[in-house]
Write a protein that binds this DNA or RNA. Sequence first.
DNA 1: ACATTTGTTAACCATTTGGTTAAACCAAAA
DNA 2: TTTTGGTTTAACCAAATGGTTAACAAATGT
Lengths: 196, 196
Amino acid sequence: MRSSTENRILEVAKEVFMEQGLYGARMQDIANKAGINKALLHYYFRSKERLFDVVFGGALTKYFKNMEVLNNNSKSVIDRIIHFSECFIDFLAEYPQMSLFLLKEMSANEALFLDKVKSIKSQEQQGVIQLITDAGLDSKVDPVLFLMQLHSLCAYPFLAAPVFKVIIEKSGQKWSDPLHDKLKSSVKKFITQQLT
Amino acid sequence: MRSSTENRILEVAKEVFMEQGLYGARMQDIANKAGINKALLHYYFRSKERLFDVVFGGALTKYFKNMEVLNNNSKSVIDRIIHFSECFIDFLAEYPQMSLFLLKEMSANEALFLDKVKSIKSQEQQGVIQLITDAGLDSKVDPVLFLMQLHSLCAYPFLAAPVFKVIIEKSGQKWSDPLHDKLKSSVKKFITQQLT
DNA sequence: ACATTTGTTAACCATTTGGTTAAACCAAAA
DNA sequence: TTTTGGTTTAACCAAATGGTTAACAAATGT
């Protein structure tokens, strides 16, 4: 079992890296928030890059894990995709900074991301694209475009929430933060509209 | 007229800040790429923050300027929104890093963003929400949700393009980068589906 | 021609930051 | 009790970084 110190470091590092990114994060800050000496960070995780790597890899794994729900063969293709969208939204609601974090760091270091994806996604799970193509639904929609729109509708609201909040409040409307349910049902509507 | 040096600095700074963000960017790097001494940066723009501020403000202004197209009263509401989406996509295609840049820096420094938005958006231009409400279309859609979905469909594909590229190529499909037209027509379809 | 402002540079400075070292601590084994 | 192994710390280091200074060159006005 990993020592409690190591776990504490990991948890704090997750927070800090998610908020500040690889560059913005400071080892001293992580150490302080974990209530330990800075040297101890390097004792457990040799370098900043190494520590970041663990955090980033963990986030990416969690992210991809969400797509496994697509393999539930007891449901129809459309229902599986709807179910996926709901799980995806739940996941993003739990980790609102996740998307931005991943996009930030990927754009900053494309090579790292490529490696990670290769090692994670190797377990040839079925993707939305495969699913649609196999079901013959690619006559209705362009699978790649559809996948992108699906992700757009699920992820972007969380990405841009702080911005929308400001803009909307500025224009006199009121902002209700966790619009999970509205979001879910609207995505569901989109999926059925597109695929039937 | 601004000196050519100042302009050169601004252009380079734009590039570097967009790519690396406020933290990641290095003054020395900007100076090198602009072919000048580092001290000259501080001569024209007192500090890194000041320089960044100019770049960020410029980007934000450009971003909001796109929404003015909504005020073209010679068209129907739906056509105006469609036109906006097309202009928005063209804009994002021209500056693919814009969205990520703005989101990154906003999440890193919400206060700065709030100030900027207040000073830029003060010119009470009509927003999508107003437009929909005034036209009575808010019986068909939740205006805020619709605005968010509209932005999602336009912006996210550019945000996540590098990621999708990797994932899609990984799963054997081929990736065609500038799918402007497909994107435009699909967004148009979405708008009409939602508002009629 | 001369003085004054503007543009530009090399050298320097203070601070921050990731990382290292050697010593201290501390529980469990011998 | 002493030894031993992993754990933790204070002090330190080298490099990087944002920023400053003083001197110098190039326009610009008189």
